Amino acid sequence: MTSSPTESRVIEEITALGPFFAIQTHPPGTHPSEPWQSLSRPLLEARVSDVRDRLAAGGGQPPAAVETRVAASVAHLGLAARLVSPALAAAVLHGLVLAPGLADLRWQPTLGGPTPLSLPDDAFTGGEEGSLSQLADELSSRLLDGTLRQLADAMAQFSVSRHILWGNTASAVNGAVTMITASRPEVTARTRTLTALLLERPPLRGASARTPGGTYRRRSCCLIYRAAPGRKGALCGDCALSR
């Protein structure tokens, strides 16, 4: 898998932010070779099943004790984070938009950490000077309402509500912000401004809010608490059910 010298520098800088930002590239229109795979229905089914097994084992339960939609929501959150994180970093650091079609991505079906991700090497667009509002418009229409909507459509087939799926996506955006600003504090203001603009636009509008103290809070729940015995697991810090 190769990329241009400029893209290689961008990828290196993005990847340095952490494993959720790590990306590789491949020539567009090519068939994946092992261990890479396209994101197909069988691959998603296998991922949801693996997540279900892992959640069940964590609670000392059989897999049947964990609802499929719970495993699907948790799997979706992880995949959404893998798409959002490098895209937000590329936008913040270079004004680039990463918004390939879901079918053009390549994945490795690993479990227990961020899923390896490869993008077509023509996925980088933009890079010209423009306002953060314009960049947020591009990300909203092409990434969120494009690639991320395609992922939500695929995961909705596992009986996960759209409300939860967009809440997961908004949570993934907020998580990426935390990691970017921790690694690159000099871009904190730019990152937070772009993110605020992004969360105000559809399809993420209304998926989250800020408390009076400024804390991020999603308006849905990823359902992971229901994977614990008696469905009494701990809630995530940004969960709508937290008080």
Rank of each mutant, 00 (worst) to 15 (best):
G95Q: 02
E128N: 07
T68M: 04
S38Y: 00
M1P: 11
L102Y: 02
S8F: 06
T30Q: 06
I14Q: 10
R142Q: 04
P86I: 06
W36K: 01
L117T: 04
L235V: 03
A16L: 03
L17E: 06
R106S: 00
K232T: 15
R231C: 03
T169P: 12
K232P: 01
E34K: 01
E129K: 10
A22S: 09
R201K: 14
R192M: 06
A154C: 09
N174L: 11
D137M: 04
R231W: 01
A71R: 05
E129I: 09
G206I: 02
E13M: 08
H26I: 04
I14L: 09
W107Q: 00
K232S: 15
C222W: 02
A80E: 11
S131N: 05
T178C: 11
N174A: 12
P212C: 12
A46V: 02
L139A: 03
G175T: 10
G230Y: 07
R184G: 09
R9H: 14
H163N: 14
R184N: 05
V173W: 07
G237I: 13
S183K: 15
L96D: 06
R205K: 15
L77A: 15
G175H: 07
Q157M: 14
G60K: 06
T30F: 00
A136G: 01
P202W: 06
S73Y: 13
M155D: 01
R201P: 13
R52F: 05
T215K: 14
G29D: 03
V187E: 12
H94E: 14
M1V: 08
R217I: 12
L111G: 03
E138I: 00
P120C: 05
D104E: 13
